[in-house]
Structures are given as C-alpha cells and as structure tokens.
Design a protein around this nucleic acid. Structure first.
Lengths: 207, 207, 207, 207
DNA sequence: TATGAATGAGATTTCATTCAT
DNA sequence: TATGAATGAAATCTCATTCAT
C-alpha cells in the first residue's frame, strides 16, 4: 500500500500504520471528497500527527489514489470470490452482477471513493476505469463467448455486450448509493440479472 | 442562471453576458474539474475581469452548479426532442437510449460536467441524479407500463426496470468518454437497444 | 523589476507598488537573510497583505533574486557615474575603487544582499558574479591596457591584474561592513588605491 | 566538536564518530548551503540514523557552525605551516598569500563553508571574520611593521594595509571557486603577490 | 456594469528535533 | 550509544471573494 519511499524516508518495517492511515483515508475521502478533506481530519481520527501521514504517503493526492487502488482491489477480490463458485456461463454472469451489487451495498465507502475519483481526477479515473475494465472484460468476453458456444446466449457482438455490461455495472456503482432506498438488495440483484439475461439468453430461462 | 437584474433595464445584454460566462464555465469546468479550475481562466477566455463573474453568479460553487443544471436541461431537451417523434412504447424506449448516447457523443462538455459533480458535491450530485431520474422515471415507467399492457414487454417489475435502464444510461455517461469506441455511434446505440430490449420484449424483435 | 506575469496575473499598470515591495524586501532580506525572512514581515512593514507580494513576484526566491539584481544595477550605476568623470587610466582605476567603497558605505543594505546571495544561492551567485565581473572586466582590462600603453602602468598580465582588482573589491564588499569601524571612508579609499597602485615594496622587486 | 561525553568512557570512539559526522557535514553543507541541507542526507551518506547526529551535536545550527570553525582552524594551520618556513617579512607576506590560495584551491569544501556562513548567519560570520582577521592581523601587522623598519616596505598605514590584504584574500575566497582559472595556481599566486608588492604603476605616484 | 488590485484564510508539505526502544 | 518513527511548528503559496474606482 505505502508507496516506494524517496531517499531518506524512514524504512518503515510496519505496514500496519500505513494501512491504518489508508483505511481512515478511505472513510474521510469518501465522506468529504478530495478537495474538502483536510488531512488533519484523518490524522485526528487516528490520533496521530499530520506529518506522520507523509511518512507513508508522498502527498495528499497519492494517498487518495492509493485509496482508489485499494478499493478497486477489494472489488476485484469480491468478483473473484463470487465467480470462483460458479460453473456455467450463466452462473458466472450472475455472480459478476451479484459481486458488484453486494460490494456497493456492503462496502459503501470503497465504492464511493471509486465514484469520487471520476469527479476530481478524470484522467486518472480514465486509466483506473480502463485498467479495471480490461482486467475484467477479457474474462467477461470469455464467459459470453462460452455461453454462445454452448447455446445458452444469443449470438451477440461479444465486445459490445461486454461493454454494455460494464456500463450497466458502472452506472450501478455511481447510482446505487443514491437510489438504494427502494427494496431489498436481493430483489435488485435478481431483477438486474433477469433483465440482463433475458436479453442474452437464447432459450428463455423460466419463462 | 443570470443573477438579480436591475428593474426596468433591458434584460437581453445581461442575459447574454451571463450565458457567455456559463458556456465558458461548462468548458473550463469540464476540462479541469471543479477544484482545479481557477475562475481567472474562465475570465481570461472571455476577455473579461474575474470580478465580472460575480455580477452574474454569487460564487464559484453556484456557477458550477448552474453549469450542471444547464447541462441537465440540455439533456432533457434532447430526450424530449427524440421521444416526441416516437409513437409506440418500443420506439419511445429506443428514442430515450438514442437521446442519451447522442448527447454524450455530441455534447461532450455538458455530459462531462454532470459526471464531474460527483467528485466535489456528492450530496448535490445525488439530488441532481434523483431530479433527472424522477423527471424521466415517471415517463419511463409509463412507457414500460404501456408496453406491458399492449403486450410488447414482458411483465417485469416496472420500477426496477426503470432503475436498471437509468443505471445503464448513467454508466454510459460515465464511461463513454473513456472507452474510445471502436465502432460507430449508431452501432453502439443499436446494440445497447437490442440487448436492453430483448430482455424486455415478449415477442422477439427480428429474431 | 516585477517579472513577466503568468497568464491570469493582473496586468499591473503601476510599477510603483512592485518597487515598494522590492525596496522593502532589500531591507528585510538584508537584515535577516533569506531563510529567516518571513514574507509576512515585508508585507507588515508595508501595511499590505502577504498575498499581494505574489501579484508582483512569483515566489520568495524570485523576490530575493530580483533584489540582488536590483542591488547590482545600483552598483553598476555608481561605477558608471564615477568613471564618467575620469579622463586618464589612473583616474579611472581610482574612480572604480572609490565607487565600490562608497557604495558599500552608503548603500549598506544593497551590498549586504549581494553578499547574502553567496551563502544561500551559490549557483545563482556564481552567475551573478560572472555577470558583474564580465560586464566590468572588459572595461577594466581596457583601462589597464591603455595605462600600460601610455606608460602609466607596468607591463602586468592584464587579465590577472583585472581579476585581482575584482577580488580586492569583492573582498571589500564582503568585509567592509564588518571592518568599517576604524577610520574614515576617504582614508580607506586612499590607502586602498595607494597600495593597489604603488604596492607594498619600497624597492621594486625584480622589476 | 563532539558533545558531552559520559565520564570514564574511552573517548576515542566518540571522537571518531563525531568527526565523521563533522567531515560529512562539511561536504553536504558545502554542496547545499545551510538552508537546503537536510540532516537526513548527512546521516544517509554515513549510513547512520538521523537521531545519532544529535548525540554529537546539539542542533543543525551548531553542527554548521562547528563545521565553519573546523574549516577556519584548517586554514589557520595552513598559514602556520607556510609562514613557519619564511624568514624575511617579504617571504612571510608571500607565504600568507600562498597559503590562502592553496587552501581555496585544495580544500574546496572547507573554503566553501566559510563563504556560505554569510548567507544565513551574518552576525556569526562577522565574528568569524573578525576572529580570523584578528588572529592573523596582529601577525600581519607585525610583519609589515618589521618590513618597514628594515626598509623592505614603504611607510604605509600598517592597519590599513593589513585590512587591504585581508580584503584581497577574502575576495579571493569568495570568487576563487567562481572564476575558473585559465592559468595555473602558481601563476595566480605569483601575479597576486607581484601586484600586492609592486603595485600597478610604472612610476611610483607621489612617492 | 465592469474592472482588477488587494485581501487573507486556509492547506499542503517539510524537517529539525524528540524519545521510546 | 544508536535507532528511526513520530511529532508539530512553521511558512510558502493559492485563489475565491471583495471593493474602490
């Protein structure tokens, strides 16, 4: 987490302190956004001095972006954990949708950080998006392709379909926190999956 | 968007100058984001003094949010213009998708402003989202309901389906600028519509 | 004095304010040195806000170095004013010595600034020195050369002699303020000139 | 230079470590100046912890000034070593000039430290100068006085002449590093001595 | 209305110094 | 003695906002 240290920076054996700061940074940045956050608040919450943060992170911006990277890594883990138990292409697609929506629901601050990056650091966010997208899109493409081959999915343009799924999930990140009031998480997952799949399925599922 | 205007004066000049500032604000905020934008840049681009901006807008924040509101109004107009020519529920849904995607494609800066709001003004962005959403969602719900009634659409949960469409479109806003499309805009519109609809349609369209 | 303004910096018609700041900067830097000087002190002395300084100078360092340049320009004027009234090479050399010593004596703060640069900005000071030196050394070389031709001066190595004169004068800058207690300025000028011209020896050594 | 040492302990190790720090401090301060030097750099270069420096020196300032004192002591040794072999007043003056110029040439960092003090510690530098000056000036005055008595030197104002010699030598310290000598060190020493002793004039002026 | 110089609060960042180990 | 993580005071610089003209 803590980045490569410039010369003269203490060789911090303990990543623990760095992680504490990172976690608190996620919370505070998530609450206030980048601009309005005073590193003093992070320091105060941890009961440390402001200067200490600079032993672990080179700048406010780098701390923020490390927090984004951290959040993305957590999301990736989520996806991994859900998909690993799915066998069929159908279940895998369901798992990916479920992973995203549970993540946004259960790790509010992490999701918020990702959404915030878009506003304050568009260029970095673009790279972030493409990184995440390309990491996942190949996997998704394979799933769709496999589903088409075995006859479960219609013969859609694989790349486009992947992109649309990404858009749907991204949009869900950005809006879920806003619209989350109505109904259960499971309901949302089910409906989203249902609509998405009934656009993909060749043979209608339980219809 | 222009501020308090002295009574009895012709309002045209005032409105014009206020609009010029607003348009330029859209461009600059869109390029830099809120935090990094120096009002001086807006003033310079227009060849006016920085203080002049304060004759039309009360603060940087208000200028930014006026720019967001402006962008949203433009989007609403777009939707309106597309939907008005559509008769069937099917065509209306297609029109809505098309309107969004053309907007993002053709009015880059306006779309970018909307996406940017999330970084620094999460609470306002939430309201913005809900406003756009509720302005549109009632219409969309009606369309879907109508489509279900006439047998075009499956019997889905109307509110949820509306939300999902919103997520998909929102996601497209946030990512459109990132994913340099390989194909044409029309292709993207068509595929998105196709996948969306074939999840909604009772009878498959052209399959 | 005030440097090229970055884009967006007010087009300050009035150099007056910039000059006031510069003069005060000379005083304060001269008193405290670079490091210990807080720009607040300069602002306070002038009854202006700290931020105002940044309308005229881009940074503390640039202000300091502008102050150095200013001091050097004043010294150059001094030299010019003294030398212009001298006809013979002999009188010109005397005038140069006199100009330096009067400058240090009468424009304490300006001289101090020049001396201070050496400590805090060695590289810049080197350039400063070489600039001043090369501006003057050609003139001095010409004077010495002329004096040799007309038989007033011994046939010394012209470049070396020039350098030695420069060293003597530079040393006087750096030490004059320290050693100025004993005796009159005129006495100091006379003796310095005398020894420079006549040397220490009673009987010329190997001449 | 080493600080309070626990009683009864062998002092050699302590002295050694303290000296290492001092030598490295000379190098780093000489390179960066006082302000820009981070004690961490000194520690890093020695492979010790920054805190260790504080076991030997009470503060950054004290370390710097110890480094200045050290440099001056080395210069004094040089002078001593050169003068001790000279018999006549003439040779002694030559030896003093030679000692200075060799010092600046061969002990760059030490000379640089002395020159640097002026930037941040003017008052201390004044004391430093006066200390060096008075340590040497009495000796120089004696030499000149002796030279006058035996008829080698002209009947100049002894104190003034001493001061002038000091200025010339000080100026040489401050500029030697700047003016990349074209010729040899010996050439510079010879010409400087020559002009100091014989002056510039062909025919003595009013002598 | 328009100007743009001036303001001054505020935030990031550095680094000498301390101190628990 | 030695370490090096932690401290926190301090200072530069920015820029939204004001206001006299």
């Amino acid at each position: 987490m803590a980045q490569a240290r410039p010369r003269g920076r203490p060789k911090l054996d303990t990543e623990k302190r760095g992680n504490e700061i990172l976690i608190e940074a996620v919370n505070v940045f998530s609450k206030n956004g980048y601009r309005t956050t005073d590193l003093q608040e992070i320091a105060d919450n941890l009961g440390i001095a402001k200067g200490t943060i600079y032993l672990y992170f080179t700048s406010k911006e780098q701390l923020f972006q490390t927090a984004v990277d951290y959040s993305i890594a957590r999301l990736a883990e989520r996806i991994e954990a859900e998909v690993i138990n799915a066998d069929s292409p159908l279940d895998k697609i369901k798992a990916i949708v479920r992973a995203h929506m549970k993540f946004f629901s259960e790790e509010y601050a992490l999701a918020e950080i990702i959404a915030r990056e878009r506003g304050d650091f568009k260029d970095r966010a673009e790279k972030t998006y493409l990184r995440v997208f390309s990491e996942n899109s190949e996997r998704i493409e394979d799933i769709i392709r496999e589903g088409i081959k075995e006859g479960t999915f219609r013969k859609v343009n694989v790349k486009r379909a992947t992109e649309i799924l990404a858009n749907l999930l991204t949009g869900t990140i950005y809006t879920y926190m806003f619209a989350k009031k109505n109904g259960s998480l499971n309901g949302a997952i089910d409906t989203t999956t249902d609509i998405l799949l009934n656009g993909l399925l060749n043979e209608r599922d339980g219809l």
